[in-house]
Amino acid sequence: MATVVEGGRDPRGAVTPRPQAPISGPELASTPLVIRRREDEETVVTFPYLVWREFLAGLAAFVFLMLVSIQVNAPLLQRANTSITPNPAKAPWYFVGLQELLERFPPIMAGVAFPSFVIIFMILTPYLDRNPSRRPQDRKVAIVLFTIYVCLAVAFVVIGEFFRGEAFNWDWTLILGHPGLSSPV
């Protein structure tokens, strides 16, 4: 039986191969219709091995969402009214980080330059990162830079969502509650 080796330009030389027993003997004979990997790593049939796991993951997600949906109602405020502005008026949570940036930087920076920079940089990531290795110990710079980005993005969203009160001013009482009151307002 011919062994088909997958080609492509995957620079596998950069990845340290794991010491693993190659497929041989009866196992080799009983695996027809297989595109076998060059490094002869242990493989499994996707059906049912992987499909079963996907089914379980989907089921767990569905049950979790069903329980949440039974317990927690989606927000529905008063009917839209252009003459009553809520204070503060906030963007959806995933854009609240941008709103927070707008508080701190001129609009042309926060509203245009930063987001464009992030999107363009994200798209270009695989072409800018010339390091062929995938091992964390070889990618310290990339990992540190990306982690800084993740921390900043999360921090801005958390600040905008939980620390900004009336007129988008800094407000500790959103999470700490008012002095003298027992629960957060």
């Binding site: 695996t31 297989v34 990997r37 790593e41 242990e42 499994v44 049939v45 996707t46 091995y49 796991r53």
Partner: peptide
């Protein structure tokens, strides 16, 4: 899905 995958590639 492909017919077979590396076991390490689909570990949860």
């Amino acid at each position: 899905h492909p017919v077979r995958v590396k076991k390490s590639a689909v570990r949860v």
